Computed example of a mutant assay.
Amino acid sequence: MDKHKVIEAYRRGLITLQECGQILGAEKTQLDDLIRVDHSRRPLSPNPFLMVDPF
């Protein structure tokens, strides 16, 4: 699995930090570095704005 997709899933709250580490095979300190580096490299999504339709 692509590490960027795993990190993005963590940021969106789909998986926990522990699950993220298990998928990537990384410890917490390594995850902190990966998440920080990945965040500075690219945005969460191509469109950072969220459109909400009020009901």
Rank of each mutant, 00 (worst) to 15 (best):
M1H: 03
M1D: 01
M1R: 06
M1N: 01
D2L: 05
D2H: 09
D2N: 15
D2R: 07
K3V: 09
K3H: 08
K3L: 05
H4S: 02
V6F: 03
V6P: 00
V6L: 09
V6N: 03
V6M: 02
I7H: 04
I7E: 04
I7N: 04
I7P: 02
A9P: 00
A9F: 06
Y10C: 01
Y10N: 02
Y10P: 00
R11D: 01
R12F: 13
R12I: 11
G13M: 06
G13F: 06
G13N: 05
G13C: 07
G13S: 07
L14Q: 14
L14W: 10
I15T: 12
I15P: 05
I15D: 08
I15E: 05
I15Q: 07
I15C: 08
T16L: 04
T16Y: 04
T16H: 03
L17T: 11
L17C: 01
Q18S: 12
Q18F: 02
Q18Y: 05
Q18V: 14
E19P: 00
C20L: 04
C20M: 14
G21C: 07
G21D: 03
Q22W: 00
Q22T: 11
Q22A: 12
I23H: 09
I23W: 03
I23E: 12
L24Q: 07
G25V: 13
G25M: 08
G25H: 10
A26W: 00
A26F: 07
A26R: 13
A26M: 09
A26E: 07
E27S: 15
E27N: 14
E27L: 04
E27R: 14
E27Y: 05
E27I: 05
K28E: 12
K28V: 15
K28R: 15
K28W: 07
T29R: 13
T29P: 00
Q30L: 08
Q30W: 00
L31F: 01
L31C: 03
L31V: 01
L31Q: 02
D32S: 13
D32V: 06
D33L: 11
L34K: 08
L34G: 01
L34W: 13
L34I: 15
I35T: 14
I35G: 01
I35Y: 04
I35S: 03
R36F: 11
R36V: 03
R36T: 13
V37D: 13
V37Q: 09
V37L: 09
V37M: 05
D38W: 10
H39Q: 10
H39L: 08
H39C: 02
S40H: 08
R41E: 12
R41Y: 10
R42P: 00
R42I: 11
P43Q: 10
P43E: 11
P43T: 15
P43G: 14
L44F: 05
L44E: 08
L44H: 02
S45T: 15
S45H: 07
S45G: 08
S45W: 01
P46H: 06
P46Y: 04
P46K: 08
P48V: 07
P48E: 06
P48R: 06
P48I: 04
F49H: 11
F49E: 11
F49W: 09
L50E: 14
L50I: 15
L50K: 12
L50N: 08
M51A: 11
M51K: 10
V52F: 11
D53V: 13
D53E: 10
D53M: 05
D53L: 06
D53S: 10
P54T: 13
F55A: 06
F55N: 03
F55W: 00
